[in-house]
Amino acid sequence: MELQRTNGDRLFSVFNYTFFALFTFLCVFPFYYLFIQTISGNDLSARGLVTWYPKDIHLTNYLEVLKIKGLSHAALVSVGRTVIGTILTVLGSAFLGFLFTKRRMWGRKFWYRFVVVTMYFNAGIIPWYIIMMNLHMTNNYLAYILPAIVSPFYVILIKTFVESLPDALQESAELDGAGIMTLFVRIVFPLILPIAATTAIFSAVAQWNSFIDTVFLMTEAKYHTLQYVLLKYLNESNSLASIIRSQGTSNVDLTNLQTPNSIRTTVSMFVVIPILLVYPFFQRFFVKGIMIGAVKG
């Protein structure tokens, strides 16, 4: 049944479409603006002459910036923590969630609460930092991986999901003499793949975007992530100036010499590209993903 269209209705529609068009523009334009800065002539973008469309298009920034000492290493650190961290988080949280569905587990309820409660309280950042120091987690790559392995959100999500599966599947395998490991790897994990994929994507984004742990724990440059290096470039114009000085005169194309501006924007692009690449694939997980924030322990 179609509603009758009144004038107020039409006005409302116009307002509505305009509002969403504007807000969407606000959300997208910064990314576009960032991109056109990196491919426009560096002297033009440094003077603020690139606003709506790229000018003097060139792609040398993407090659030149990668040559900056330590930057490709930082990218490697970021990729490493994202890949290793995500795999271990998914496996660890899924396995624990699966174990919590086993009623025979000793102290199951207690241990389940033990994990879930950590969602609602934390000791505070300084006590956490003190303990991380005592656990030798400063300047240690494991600090990126280990604390993330058990995520209470994911554990709850997977436990609930496994509980919704028919018992018969596991029972028949158990009758055939399958142990816990076999049961998890062969029977349960393939079945929870959709939810595991959701947790994988959210954990990957979280790992890639994380920087405050680097701020707290990593003083040595070899543990610095791309996010952290970008933050440093934004805050310390000195470190950028020295990079630019060191690029020497070998660069023939004088108009596209690196500027603080070009380095910042290009590194930003390196930080955002992976997100943009996986984005089309993971927006179908959105509703499941927000469930992660809404599930009840």
């Binding site: 660890g92 396995f95 102290g107 006590p127 003190i130 058990v150 816990i180």
Partner: peptide
């Protein structure tokens, strides 16, 4: 079953509960 879970529970203990000692 508990033993299988214990390494993971240990991680929770170390990174979520031990900081209380701080």
């Amino acid at each position: 079953l508990f033993l299988y879970a214990s390494p993971l529970l240990l991680l929770v203990l170390l990174f979520s509960y031990l900081p209380l000692y701080g």
